[in-house]
Amino acid sequence: MVRRRVPPVTLALIAIGLVAGGLWWWAVLRLLLVPGEAGPVEGAVAAGGWGLSLLPVHVAASSRRPGASARSVTKASRRRRWGAGSAPS
């Protein structure tokens, strides 16, 4: 079995994500279970996390081919794969 080292930056990002997710769940559960004692901080954390969850839906790339209906200003070139031969011109 091969053991691979995980970079410290990746571990830190995972830890930050878990802490942020835990804080969001804490705020949501506090708002649901004891709404009279929950303050504006819990509301802001819950609303902010909910808003961030919608972000990938609105920022997702279009599935249309570039240039199908509107011409793009720049085109990305494809990387050549070794042994794949030449690309069609």
Rank of each mutant, 00 (worst) to 15 (best):
V41S: 07
A46I: 01
G22S: 06
R80W: 03
L32H: 07
M1K: 13
S77H: 10
A20S: 10
G21Q: 05
W82R: 15
G85D: 08
G43K: 09
S89F: 07
S53W: 11
G36E: 11
R5H: 10
G49D: 03
R5D: 10
G43I: 01
V34A: 12
A27Y: 01
T74W: 11
V28Y: 04
R79C: 10
L33I: 15
P88T: 11
R79G: 15
R71S: 13
I16T: 09
L33S: 11
W25Q: 08
A68P: 00
M1Q: 10
A47R: 13
R65I: 06
A60T: 05
R79Y: 06
L55F: 14
G17K: 08
L55K: 00
K75Q: 10
R80H: 07
L55E: 03
P35M: 13
S69A: 15
G85H: 09
V45M: 04
V28K: 04
A84R: 13
A70I: 12
S86V: 14
A47P: 00
V28F: 07
A27M: 01
L31V: 02
W82C: 02
T74S: 12
A38C: 04
L13A: 14
S77V: 12
T10K: 05
P40E: 09
A47I: 09
L55G: 03
W26L: 08
S72M: 05
R71C: 00
A47V: 10
A27T: 02
S69D: 14
A84F: 12
A44F: 11
I14T: 13
A12I: 05
W24V: 01
G17V: 02
I14H: 10
G48K: 03
L52R: 05
S62E: 12
P7N: 06
G36S: 10
P8D: 11
V28W: 02
R79A: 15
V6I: 15
I14Y: 08
V28E: 00
L54W: 15
G21C: 06
V6P: 00
R5K: 08
A84S: 15
R3S: 13
L54I: 09
S63T: 15
L54V: 13
G67S: 04
E37L: 10
A70R: 14
A60M: 10
G43T: 05
W26K: 03
V59F: 11
A27R: 00
R78M: 11
L18E: 04
V6C: 12
W25D: 04
W25H: 07
G49S: 06
G83T: 06
W50K: 02
A61V: 12
A61Y: 07
L18T: 14
W50G: 13
P88W: 14
V45W: 01
R78S: 11
G49P: 03
L23N: 02
